Simulated assay, not measured.
Amino acid sequence: MILEVAILNVKSDLTDEFEKSFSKAQKIISNMKGYISHKLKKCLETPNKYILLVNWETLEDHTIGFRESKEYQEWKELLHHFYDPFPTVEHYI
Rank of each mutant, 00 (worst) to 15 (best):
residue 70 K to T: 13
residue 71 E to I: 04
residue 28 I to E: 01
residue 11 K to I: 12
residue 82 F to N: 09
residue 13 D to M: 05
residue 60 E to P: 03
residue 90 E to T: 15
residue 44 L to C: 11
residue 89 V to L: 09
residue 90 E to N: 14
residue 71 E to S: 15
residue 32 M to V: 04
residue 41 K to A: 10
residue 72 Y to F: 15
residue 72 Y to A: 04
residue 10 V to P: 03
residue 65 G to T: 05
residue 6 A to D: 08
residue 89 V to H: 07
residue 74 E to T: 12
residue 60 E to H: 07
residue 33 K to G: 02
residue 5 V to H: 15
residue 35 Y to P: 00
residue 15 T to V: 15
residue 12 S to V: 05
residue 8 L to F: 06
residue 35 Y to L: 00
residue 33 K to V: 07
residue 47 P to F: 07
residue 86 F to D: 10
residue 69 S to L: 05
residue 80 H to R: 14
residue 89 V to R: 10
residue 31 N to M: 00
residue 10 V to E: 02
residue 53 L to M: 15
residue 91 H to P: 07
residue 31 N to I: 00
residue 20 K to D: 09
residue 57 E to V: 09
residue 43 C to Y: 02
residue 1 M to I: 07
residue 73 Q to P: 00
residue 23 S to L: 04
residue 68 E to C: 06
residue 14 L to G: 00
residue 43 C to N: 15
residue 91 H to F: 10
residue 80 H to W: 13
residue 33 K to D: 11
residue 44 L to I: 12
residue 79 L to V: 04
residue 51 I to Q: 10
residue 87 P to K: 11
residue 73 Q to R: 12
residue 38 H to A: 08
residue 76 K to H: 14
residue 56 W to R: 06
residue 66 F to Q: 03
residue 42 K to D: 08
residue 5 V to D: 05
residue 83 Y to N: 10
residue 68 E to N: 14
residue 88 T to H: 12
residue 26 Q to K: 14
residue 31 N to Q: 11
residue 21 S to I: 00
residue 92 Y to T: 01
residue 83 Y to S: 11
residue 33 K to I: 06
residue 51 I to M: 11
residue 55 N to R: 14
residue 75 W to Y: 15
residue 32 M to G: 00
residue 37 S to Q: 12
residue 78 L to Y: 03
residue 25 A to E: 06
residue 90 E to W: 03
residue 36 I to A: 03
residue 18 F to M: 04
residue 15 T to K: 04
residue 58 T to M: 05
residue 88 T to E: 15
residue 5 V to R: 13
residue 2 I to M: 11
residue 46 T to I: 12
residue 38 H to S: 12
residue 89 V to M: 09
residue 21 S to K: 10
residue 50 Y to D: 02
residue 74 E to D: 12
residue 66 F to W: 02
residue 33 K to P: 01
residue 40 L to Y: 02
residue 77 E to N: 15
residue 46 T to H: 03
residue 84 D to H: 14
residue 38 H to K: 12
residue 7 I to A: 06
residue 18 F to K: 05
residue 88 T to S: 13
residue 11 K to L: 11
residue 6 A to G: 13
residue 56 W to N: 07
residue 59 L to F: 09
residue 25 A to N: 08
residue 52 L to T: 08
residue 63 T to H: 03
residue 47 P to Y: 03
residue 53 L to C: 12
residue 33 K to M: 06
residue 20 K to Y: 09
residue 56 W to H: 08
residue 31 N to R: 06
residue 91 H to E: 07
residue 19 E to C: 09
residue 68 E to T: 11
residue 1 M to Q: 11
residue 4 E to S: 10
residue 40 L to S: 04
residue 25 A to V: 05
residue 13 D to C: 05
residue 31 N to H: 05
residue 30 S to D: 08
residue 40 L to H: 03
residue 46 T to G: 00
residue 90 E to V: 11
residue 4 E to N: 09
residue 9 N to Y: 09
residue 91 H to D: 07
residue 81 H to W: 09
residue 85 P to V: 08
